[in-house]
Amino acid sequence: MNVVEARDVRVQYERVTALDGVNLTLTSGIALGIVGPNGSGKSTLLKAIAGLVLPAAGTVTVFGRSPRDLPPGTIGYVPQIEDVDWQFPANVRDVVAMGRYPRLGPFARFGAEDRAAVDRALAALDLTALAQRHISQLSGGQQQRAFVARAIAQEPKLLLLDEPTTGVDAATEDALMHLIRSLVKNGLPVLMTTHDLDRAPEWFDRLIVVDRRVLADGDPATVLEGGTYSAIREHTHVHGHLRADRGPE
């Protein structure tokens, strides 16, 4: 069974078409990179797969089911550093522990296995020393790592990451991608958006270029050599935002 299958997906925000005619299949155990200019619908594609936005047309299935009908805990999602309330009464460990919540039924105990998963996730993201620190006292990169740790603690069957390397230093980026590669090696399918074209060939097994639709798809080096991405980026630079060119549908 395919991990992700998107067929003719169109996503509409009011009068703006974010995605149109997107087809994508993802098989197990590979890391798929998603690149595209700002506003190209990369994040929307992840949200559609996570069941956070519903397609206006077409279908998205994850493990053969609609994303909203999956067993709790199936999809791990790391959004771009978002506007959560950083004053929320929680330390780093509390936030990472939330990753276990979807699996726990009402009145279920937060058991030894859950604590061990949280410990492992904290260690994997080098957050053990910061575990008791309040989330408002973290740097941007540390906040990003805490959110990745929460997704890892969840032990998902599919991991979606939205530009997790944006705003982190080079060392953290390397550590993060090393961790993601090791998860992929153990069979976890990963979808990740990025702006970093230079590193894409070493990070991903497969790369797609998205600009409202999938413009190129294949081996990262081949896709980048094909020039699709540089062409649309050029176009964006010369003519301003692509959305403005096309106008509302």
């Binding site: 956070l52 067993p71 709790p72 805990g73 999809i75 999602y77 959560v84 979807p102 997704a151 998902p156």
Partner: peptide, 17 residues
């Protein structure tokens, strides 16, 4: 737990089921 998770981060809580 669902109340606590959705109070802090409803988007990710929703994505995770």
């Amino acid at each position: 737990r669902p109340l606590l998770y959705t109070s802090f981060d409803p988007t990710v809580a929703q994505a995770s089921g």
